Amino acid sequence: MPHQQTIERKTARTTTKFTGEVTCKGGSSRGIVKDLSAAGICFQLYFDINATTGQEVSIKSDEFGHLTGVVQWYRGDKIGIRLNVSSNTSAQISSYYKYFR
C-alpha cells in the first residue's frame, strides 16, 4: 500500500462563503471565496475563464477590496490563488478577519 503524503500548510485557512470576482487574461467571473488565508484563496468560479497555472489574476470583493495573485492550481470550477505578499494585502486580510468574521 503506498504511503500518502500529508501536505502541511504554512498558514491556516478559514472556511468562508462570500462572493467576489476574479479577472485574468482569459476573462472574468463572479464566484464564491471558499476559503481564505494570509497566503491564498480558494475561489469557486461561476463561469470558466480559461485560467492557467502561473497566470496573474486580480480578485475583488466587498469583504477585502482588491487583491492580486497568481493561479497556483485549477481543478474543475475551483482555482487556488497564491496572493502577492505585501503590507497592503496583509492589512486587507486582517481587516476581513476583524470586521467580517
Rank of each mutant, 00 (worst) to 15 (best):
K17Y: 06
W73M: 07
G26V: 10
L45T: 05
I59V: 15
D77Y: 14
G26T: 08
Y97P: 02
G65L: 08
G76A: 13
V33P: 02
N88C: 03
K60M: 11
V70P: 00
N84V: 15
Q72A: 15
T11I: 02
M1I: 09
N50W: 09
E63N: 14
A38W: 09
Q55A: 10
T16H: 09
R13V: 07
R9G: 06
E56T: 12
G69F: 10
D77R: 15
G80R: 05
G69A: 13
Y99F: 15
S87P: 00
S28D: 06
T89D: 01
A51W: 00
C24E: 04
E21S: 08
T23M: 08
V85D: 11
Y74S: 07
S87V: 13
E21R: 15
Y99M: 03
T53Y: 01
G27A: 08
G76K: 12
E56W: 08
S95M: 06
T6M: 09
S90Q: 13
G65C: 08
D48C: 10
S95I: 01
Q72I: 03
T23L: 09
T19N: 05
T89M: 14
D35I: 07
T23D: 04
I93N: 03
T52W: 07
S90P: 00
E21C: 14
L67R: 10
T19V: 08
G80I: 02
A38S: 03
C42T: 06
E63A: 14
F47L: 12
L45W: 00
P2C: 01
I81G: 00
Q44N: 05
G27N: 06
Q92S: 11
K34F: 06
Q92K: 15
F64P: 00
V71K: 01
R13H: 07
S58D: 10
Y97R: 05
T68F: 02
I32D: 05
I41Q: 02
K60Y: 07
A91Y: 12
S29D: 06
I59M: 13
C24N: 13
S61C: 09
Y46R: 05
R101C: 11
S86E: 09
